[in-house]
Nucleic acid binder design. Structure first.
Ligand SMILES: NC(=O)c1ccc[n+]([C@@H]2O[C@H](COP(=O)([O-])OP(=O)(O)OC[C@H]3O[C@@H](n4cnc5c(N)ncnc54)[C@H](O)[C@@H]3O)[C@@H](O)[C@H]2O)c1
Ligand SMILES: NC(=O)c1ccc[n+]([C@@H]2O[C@H](COP(=O)([O-])OP(=O)(O)OC[C@H]3O[C@@H](n4cnc5c(N)ncnc54)[C@H](O)[C@@H]3O)[C@@H](O)[C@H]2O)c1
Lengths: 290, 290
DNA sequence: CCATCTTTGTGCACGCGTTCACAAAGACAT
DNA sequence: ATGTCTTTGTGAACGCGTGCACAAAGATGG
């Protein structure tokens, strides 16, 4: 079920790099803050610091939008806010629907930042009949039966999925069929969508796991104090495991009855726990493209 | 997004690529599903499809962990689940605290997937005195005054921030000072943290803006058929930019006023598709999780 | 034991993204 | 005008991540 495509054809030539697009909102936020303080201009250095990025990167990002700065001075805050907003398509109104009004969906509906920048919650949809009509964040929840009419009726092109994982794909299909072409998915599932539909995913579980990885690495580093070289000290190495079936560690996992959550495999598996190799740190997108 | 900051001589050659680490949870989820269905083995092709990635990429990812597959057969599901879990550090228990039990914080606390994979909500913390003692998701909310003792007392190294943007940095500082070295931030702010601390950010607003960008582009593409060139048009050219003052639009703003971001350490933005930036690597001794 | 078929593991090339470093543009002072 | 100073915009180098293509490992069948 390969999810949708990831990159666009060649039409990209004139486009703005994805990495840059992902940072524009960040710049916009920093600029908005400056705007509120009536700061007239900012240098790439200052703005970069506020946005938490490298100034060269910021300048290059802006260069994709055009030459909006003034050498020797910096960038006009108001003007840049406008340009970025326009580039991101925030100068128009985007009706959004949230499907699955449970814990998360309700929280999202109540989120103020939602409507603050061109996004408007057009409707809240849930499959639970008991929820129908019930107001959440000032908006009456509507039943899934009306999903299609809501989408087409309001010209919604962005949908947020906050249903259980099991219902996500189904909801996704209906949204797409009704005309939605951009989806923000909170359910822990890989959504399959036709070409032309963008899917971005927010997965708390994955974020935590990535943090755990680094956390473990940090801890491991501390223990290996006495280790001389950092190069070749793996452990019951991969290469070695080859050849001998019997060498495979006895899995602490319960044979085939393990249902539910993954087995919390035996704690530190002997050698394993020891020094983990360290890896680059840095990061990865919290959200991934479809 | 996440940690970024100073970066270091990327000489850490023995590590697993960040991009790979970010995908491991995805593979793990797919594998867990297979495991529940008692599927004994999977080929890279099948698993890749389930995880929504390219099979070659998957094989390369696994190759960083070791040679855990069998040519002509595929990978042993149970064994791989164990190996990935161990690599991600999920074979141990990670106590986590959530700070800011509002709409979002409460939803997070109620999220089951949280505890399903080695993560345990050790405590819920909020500054509102009225919340103290109140049970959320079966756990009594504790007041911020106890933040430090909770962290040290439970050996917490991972913290989740779900407070308003204005309080995020302050909360972050306290968490870090108390010993937390990994933070998942939901507040729309750039957090400044000392070296060695990882920060990952989940920002709904940014996700929507990115979707809006693509959405606008899709719409524009269809209309622009008749338009001439797309290079430099629609806009006041660089030099003459000053002329179109009147066109500027006042934009609605979102909270998130940030004080002096004088931070030395910058943070990155997670981008989307392509490559990620590499980051620093924490040298600061981490706190050993219990 | 050999032949054939399947699937892994990876060398390699390519493209994107990041960062450095600097020429040039413009502001400002004289 | 001319000189100096500040800051942009970007060419170029580099490193990472991706995906192709294929040799080799191992299973399977004769
Ligand atoms: N709560 C969190 O913090 C959190 C974090 C990360 C991911 N998630 C994911 O987000 C999703 C929602 O989480 P939650 O805690 O809000 O769950 P929840 O059970 O509280 O809410 C799910 C809601 O979806 C509705 N629903 C079910 N099937 C539906 C369908 N076919 N169409 C429309 N609505 C439907 C249910 O009636 C319910 O109201 C889950 O997939 C969860 O894994 C939640
Ligand atoms: N709700 C969402 O869907 C959503 C989505 C994206 C981002 N966010 C962000 O997440 C954060 C929380 O959102 P929310 O909707 O839950 O807000 P909320 O106002 O409902 O909850 C905030 C909670 O934080 C507590 N708090 C305030 N200052 C604190 C402090 N110094 N220490 C500890 N607790 C403190 C408050 O008492 C309150 O309970 C905000 O920054 C918001 O921008 C929310």
């Amino acid at each position: 079920m390969a999810t949708g495509r990831t990159h666009r054809p060649a039409t990209r030539s004139r486009g703005i790099p994805e990495a840059t697009v992902a940072r524009l909102p960040l710049y916009l936020r920093a600029l908005t803050a400056l705007s509120e303080r009536s700061v007239p201009t900012v240098s790439s250095e200052e703005l970069a610091a506020a946005a938490g990025v490298n100034s060269a990167k910021l300048r290059k990002d802006f260069s994709y939008l055009g030459s909006y700065g003034t050498r020797g001075v910096g960038y006009d805050v108001e003007y840049l806010v406008y340009q970025i907003s326009r580039e991101l398509g925030l100068t128009q109104d985007w009706p959004v629907v949230i499907v699955g009004i449970g814990n998360l969906g309700a929280a999202l509906a109540n989120y103020g930042g939602f409507a603050s920048r061109g996004f408007r919650v057009a409707a809240l949809i849930d499959a639970d009949p008991a929820m129908a009509g019930k107001p959440v964040a000032g908006i009456a929840v509507q039943h899934t039966d009306e999903l299609e009419s809501i989408i087409t009726g309001n010209g919604v092109s962005i949908g947020v999925i906050a249903t259980p994982a099991g219902a996500a794909q189904q909801v996704c299909d209906r949204l797409v069929a009704a005309g939605v072409t951009s989806i923000l998915n909170f359910a822990p599932t890989v959504l399959s969508v036709p070409e032309g539909v963008d899917v971005r995913k927010v997965d708390l579980s994955i974020e935590l796991q990535i943090l755990a990885f680094h956390e473990q690495r940090k801890a491991g580093e501390g223990e290996r104090v006495a280790l001389p070289i950092e190069g070749g000290d793996l452990e019951p190495s991969p290469g070695g495991s080859r050849g001998t079936e019997g060498e495979r560690v006895a899995l602490p996992i319960e044979g085939g009855a393990q249902a539910g959550p993954m087995a919390r495999a035996g704690q530190d598996t002997g050698a394993a726990a020891g020094g983990r190799q360290q890896g680059p740190d840095g990061d990865v997108p919290a959200v991934m493209p479809a």
